[in-house]
């Protein structure tokens, strides 16, 4: 394997076939994709093109029918379930369209969830003070100082998405995957969330893989890929520039 050092994610010949009863439906027809460290990549395309499916495969949530996904230089889909779970925990941050916060936990607890999953009870107890501080700082920097103890139902859509963003960033993963993060928000609220997202990406020089329908948004990404019926159309093969 000749993996370029600064490639954080490398997908090759990803195929995904869904079986519903007797009919087989091929959603992804062999997708290649590279993501370089610190790069901002927008994935666009009509609804039903297979963007979410691709994100789930790359995010190690859905096994591809064929193809490989290398994360951190390892072929993720040939690892054990446990190792793959650790990769999701440490290397990947997810932001979904519908926030997906845990209703029973307050904002701070939701943000700390990745650490809770990563650590045993005693480990977590020992570092709890640090976790709490980090979660509060993160929420405060997202303008949620007054919302620490609020539960998801007590938050607005924009606030929820900011909590979800803080959660995705909590363990400082090198790779952030966002599937239409503003799709469920009004324009102004969405803008604010995106500002935070881009700012966090820039500050931490994360690789961001962003699915969006918003052309203006795509313009602010270093590279734009268009997806059509399970294929990436007019892909720029050359490594992306890091410029805004």
């Amino acid at each position: 394997m000749t993996s370029v050092p600064n490639v954080v994610l490398k997908a090759r010949a990803i195929r995904k076939v869904f079986k519903t009863g007797d009919t087989e439906l091929e959603i992804l027809h062999g997708v290649d994709l590279d993501l370089v460290a610190g790069e901002r990549l927008a994935l666009m395309g009509p609804s039903g093109a297979g963007k979410s499916t691709l994100l789930h495969v790359l995010g190690l949530l859905e096994r591809p029918t064929a193809g490989t996904v290398d994360i951190d230089g390892r072929d993720a889909w040939s690892l054990t379930t446990l190792e793959r779970a650790a990769l999701r925990n440490r290397h990947l941050g997810f932001v979904f369209q519908f926030y997906h916060l845990v209703a029973e936990l307050d904002a701070v607890e939701n943000v700390m969830l990745p650490a809770m999953i990563a650590q045993s009870s005693s480990e977590f107890r020992r570092s709890k003070a640090a976790h709490l501080k980090k979660a509060r700082d993160l929420l405060a920097s997202f303008g949620l100082s007054e919302r620490m103890k609020h539960r998801p139902t007590q938050l607005s859509g924009g606030e929820r998405q900011r909590v979800a963003l803080a959660r995705a960033l909590f363990l400082d993963p090198p790779l952030l995957i966002a599937d239409e993060p503003t799709g469920n928000l009004d324009r102004d609220t969405g803008e604010k969330v995106l500002e935070l997202l881009f700012r966090a990406q820039a500050e931490r020089s994360l690789s961001l893989l962003l699915v969006t329908h918003d052309e203006r948004l795509a313009e602010r990404c270093g590279r734009v890929l268009r997806m059509e019926a399970g294929r990436i159309a007019g892909a720029k093969a050359e490594p992306a520039s890091l410029a805004r």
């Binding site: 995010g59 949530l61 379930t81 446990l82 779970a85 650790a86 999701r88 925990n89 440490r90 997810f94 997906h100 916060l101 845990v102 209703a103 969830l113 990745p114 999953i117 990563a118 959660r167």
Partner: peptide
């Protein structure tokens, strides 16, 4: 179901 999905996305294993 949704929470199970979130937990998995955040790194929980099936055994967890």
């Amino acid at each position: 179901r949704r929470d199970i999905g979130i937990l998995t996305a955040l790194g929980a294993t099936p055994n967890g």
